[in-house]
Amino acid sequence: MQEDRVVLALVCLFVVTLGTVYVLESAVLWVFWGATMMALSGGLLVRSNRET
């Protein structure tokens, strides 16, 4: 149940920040956003694999 909430929070964060970056149309923000999302999703994947 806890993992579901974490995934839902990550999806919400992803959608909101994606919309913001899309509206602002900045190449620097796109790169920063992509790197941040990769780090967050990768970190959560590693964390969930270590817990099981």
Rank of each mutant, 00 (worst) to 15 (best):
S26D: 13
L29Y: 05
V16K: 02
V7M: 15
V28W: 03
S41G: 06
G43T: 08
S26C: 07
T36Q: 01
G19N: 12
L45K: 03
L18W: 14
L18F: 15
G42S: 06
V16Y: 11
V28T: 12
A35M: 07
R50S: 07
E51H: 07
M1C: 09
L29F: 03
V28M: 09
G43C: 09
E51G: 01
A35N: 03
G42I: 04
A27G: 02
S48H: 09
D4I: 05
V15D: 08
A27Q: 00
R47M: 10
A27L: 02
G43S: 09
C12I: 10
L29I: 02
L10F: 06
V31N: 00
L24C: 04
T36L: 01
V23T: 11
E51L: 11
T20S: 12
R50M: 07
V31A: 01
S41Y: 13
V15L: 14
L24S: 06
G19F: 12
V11M: 14
T36N: 01
R47L: 13
M37G: 01
G34R: 08
G19I: 09
M38K: 10
A39R: 10
V31P: 00
L40S: 04
T20K: 11
V16G: 01
G34Q: 07
L29E: 07
Q2P: 07
S26Q: 11
M38N: 07
L40V: 07
E3S: 05
V7H: 08
L18P: 00
G43A: 07
V11I: 14
L13V: 03
T17D: 10
A27I: 00
A27M: 01
A35P: 00
V15K: 08
E51P: 00
C12Q: 05
L18N: 04
V6M: 15
Y22R: 05
L10H: 03
L10W: 05
V11H: 13
L18M: 08
S26W: 02
L29C: 03
V11A: 15
G43E: 08
A35R: 04
V46T: 08
N49D: 06
C12K: 06
T52R: 12
V23L: 14
F14D: 11
T17G: 05
L10Q: 05
T20A: 14
A27R: 02
Y22N: 07
V23S: 08
V31F: 01
A39T: 08
V7Y: 10
G42Y: 10
V11L: 15
W30C: 10
Y22F: 13
L13P: 00
T20H: 13
W30T: 06
L45F: 10
G34S: 13
A9L: 12
L44R: 05
D4W: 05
T17N: 15
Y22L: 12
W33K: 06
S48R: 10
R50W: 13
G43V: 04
G42Q: 04
C12F: 14
M38P: 00
V7Q: 13
D4K: 04
V15Y: 07
D4L: 10
S26H: 04
V16F: 04
V16R: 05
V6G: 09
M37W: 00
V6D: 15
A27V: 01
V6K: 09
V31K: 00
E3A: 11
R5C: 11
N49Y: 14
S41L: 15
V28K: 03
E25V: 02
V46A: 13
Y22A: 15
D4F: 05
L18K: 03
S41I: 14
S48V: 08
V46Q: 03
A35I: 12
T36G: 00
E3Y: 03
C12T: 05
G19C: 09
V6S: 14
